[in-house]
């Protein structure tokens, strides 16, 4: 964990509650989701592994059972935002990224 590098992305206010937004960080596309009522930001890879398009940030956020999920807007598979795992096909897992909010600024932890 020591080599985790925190990259500032945007102000928390720029993220629409209960919706996603994409960020480009060091050539990598990362999807951020601002969850309510916790007002917490979760981050996963923006590429949808089923369609290979960079669209995860444009999915609808919700829950299936206890899992907080996003539905890919392309073919509607659901991904657990904390584990990155596809609900429909648990063999498919997308990368997740640690996040934190400091002084109203959203930061993503990436390994250099």
């Amino acid at each position: 964990m020591s080599d985790l590098h925190w990259v500032p992305v945007c102000a928390l206010d720029e993220l629409v509650p209960q919706r996603g937004a994409a960020a480009l960080i060091g050539g990598r596309q990362i999807a951020l989701f601002r969850l309510m009522p916790e007002d917490e930001v979760l981050a996963i890879a923006n590429e949808d592994p089923f369609s290979e398009a960079n669209v995860m940030a444009r999915g609808i956020v919700g829950s299936i059972g206890d899992a907080v999920v996003v539905a890919s807007p392309m073919y509607k598979q659901h991904f657990d935002l904390r584990a990155g795992r596809s609900i429909e096909d648990p063999d498919v897992v997308v990368e997740t990224f640690p996040t934190r909010v400091a002084r109203g600024l959203v930061e993503i932890g990436v390994r250099p």
Binding site: Q18, G59, I60, V61, G62, S63, I64, V68, V69, A71, K76, H78
Partner: peptide, 8 residues
């Protein structure tokens, strides 16, 4: 719950 891509 939180809703989902069906009910929303």
């Amino acid at each position: 719950g939180r809703g989902c891509d069906i009910c929303k």
